[in-house]
């Protein structure tokens, strides 16, 4: 089997490019892409914001923007890298305090979480610690860590999002981990 675009062994399934193409006009195809990628987007936002509400807002914004821009996805590179690139931009705009440029009625009718179990509460505390620690280290390193571990991207895909070489991404991740360990108390706070 030979395929043109995403041949890298780490790359996502090829059918995504066909799906993304269908998604321009086919609602179900877009929904399928959404279902495949919503968790990576949500996790990435959770790691950086540390709270559910902002993460849900940002996840909505990310996919609304993807809906607007799906026709500009040219089927080159991976869809995961493309959607995470949007997630990254949305997050930066969010923290700059600019207004969301999409209406957020997407965030309408979902209810409150029920009483959190101890485990869920612990999980949230850990995410909060991670978000705090990410803000204490160099932003590009935090970004690479977030995309890699929470966005679930390969180094190659992270390199596409950050417009850096793969080697530079490896370096960012390695330095980022070192920073987290030496400059934050994260290693102590995250207990599994």
């Amino acid at each position: 089997m030979t395929t043109l675009m995403a041949i890298q062994p780490e790359s996502p399934p090829m059918d995504e490019i066909q799906l993304a193409r269908e998604a321009v006009s086919n609602t179900d195809a877009f929904a399928e892409l959404y279902r495949r990628h919503v968790l990576r987007v949500f996790r990435y936002h959770m790691a950086h914001t540390g709270n559910v509400k902002d993460s849900e807002d940002l996840t909505s914004q990310t996919f609304m923007a993807a809906l607007e821009g799906i026709k500009s996805f040219r089927g080159s590179g991976s869809f995961a890298a493309w959607i995470m690139g949007i997630a990254s931009k949305k997050r930066l705009m969010f923290f700059r305090g600019s207004k969301p440029d999409v209406t957020l009625d997407a965030a309408l009718h979902y209810p409150s979480p029920s009483l959190p179990t101890d485990k869920a509460a612990n999980q949230r505390l850990q995410l909060e610690s991670i978000a705090r620690a990410f803000r204490q280290i160099a932003p590009d390193r935090a970004e690479a860590l977030g995309l890699s571990f929470f966005g679930g991207l390969s180094n190659l895909e992270v390199s596409r999002v950050l417009n850096k070489t793969e080697a530079a991404v490896k370096m960012l991740i390695s330095r980022g981990l070192q920073d987290l360990r030496e400059r934050t108390s994260l290693a102590l706070e995250v207990e599994l």
Binding site: A31, R43, M64, D105, F149
Partner: peptide, 23 residues
């Protein structure tokens, strides 16, 4: 540890369903 926390992080199922409908 980071990877494990990431993998245990899940979005609210209703939120995801609502967003999907909206999209």
């Amino acid at each position: 540890k980071l990877q494990t926390v990431a993998e245990q992080t899940n979005a609210n199922a209703h939120f995801m369903a609502e967003l999907e409908n909206k999209l």
